[in-house]
Amino acid sequence: MMIELQHVKKKYGDFNLNCSLQVQEGMVTGLIGANGAGKSTTFKAILGLLKADSGVIRVFGKEPEKLTAEEKSRIGVVLSESGFSNYLKVKQIAGILESLYPRFQKGVFLEKCRRFQIPSDKLLKEFSTGMKAKLKVLIATSFEARLLILDEPTSGLDVVARDEILDLLREYMETDGRSILISSHISSDLEGLCDDLYMIDHGEIVLHEETDALLNSYGVLKVSREEWENLDKSCILRVRKESFGYSCLTGERDFYMENYPSIAMEKGSIDEVIFMMIKGEVL
């Protein structure tokens, strides 16, 4: 197990985090949720940047504060609002990384920077948002990390830049024994990358599912009031009142397609599942 969180709680004013999740070796695990849902707080707890009020956090089987420098050198991190100082240049950062990470490959890193048109002789403060985001991911993947912890690595980027970053991550996962924990509020980014998805809302994990299962088994039924009355509701996860009747989220799409062939059914995209999980009511 790369990461394990058991009932990790943290209180900030009105916000309460209560999170349990696992990141398995060889898997890409996504944490998805709206802004302010608790993604960054969860990441900071995993990285030991804040102290949880209670619960268990394990990274490589150890408490984050007890990780040695060698163990930390196998973790690549991207934080959405933090990074190297804007008063540094890429060539200076390469020198710093060379001293910090025994497996850092300076030549490969600088070559990749060239490939992604990231200037090595300019201060970071002169970089565009896209250039900074790409650089953060290039840094995290430059020293043979076993685990990447990426908080909103594609935030604020256009489609092309987002695709480039996702390609970098796919390339990273081609080596066995590696894992990624990634958060995003852009579901399409995670849909094509993650094996496993956790959905967080108001600090609580509201859904955990393998991505394939989520895309293949989840669906949203659109039913009239009459259809609603006669519907078997045992597999309905959430329901929401609509002008035409009800939208119902189910994790057993095939069951309803076989037994209610006349009912309109939409395949469960991640966006739709999130929307229903957050806005819908539990029966």
């Binding site: 420098a69 930390k72 050198s73 933090s82 100082s85 804007n86 912890i149």
Partner: peptide, 21 residues
């Protein structure tokens, strides 16, 4: 102050260094 700017300390502490080092 440079380390602290733009929440830089959070990132620095994810590098292979402890608070003591």
């Amino acid at each position: 102050a440079y380390d602290d700017a733009d929440r830089g300390m959070a990132f620095l502490l994810t590098l292979p260094v402890s608070k003591t080092s």
